[in-house]
Amino acid sequence: MIRHQYRALVCATALLVPCLSYISPGFLALMGIGPSWVVLWLLPWALEEGSFSGVLAGVSFGLILDSISLGDVTQIPALVILGFWWGRLGRIGIPIEKVFSLGLLGWLGSVLIGLCFWLQLFFFKRPVSVDLFNSWSLHTIFAQSIMTALLTPIVSSRLLLFFRSRSNSV
């Protein structure tokens, strides 16, 4: 019973990611750019569940988020890399729980996703519009990573505690 409840709650929190990406609340935006919601969920999930679950979650979220955006670019590669890396980090060494560590990982994850977009835009859209070093990409990466880093200690730490409670109770 507890297991079913846990799964339902995991699904509910995961569903919040595309929902919040759709809603993109203005009060959680820096100069019009919101956080990377998927990072806030994927980080605690991969830290707790390991590389395999992290990669699967990364692919799943990548597919969902690509489907709700018009982009000709995909975030699956970046999410797969992050899911694997954070899964490894959770399995080896000391458990990552500190607020600063989570914030730093969230920031790095958001920057990696941004760089992935930047490179894809450069290689696929360069002939028509986007230069390699354009201020818009830099601005988007920094604004999004700062917002993600600020929210990670608040949101991801709570999710990490929630995911950890399952391994203690089940």
Binding site: S24, G32, I33, S69, G71, F117
Partner: peptide, 10 residues
């Protein structure tokens, strides 16, 4: 839904 800034502008 509106995303007028960021990676997707839609």
């Amino acid at each position: 839904s509106r995303q007028s800034k960021g990676w997707w502008q839609q």
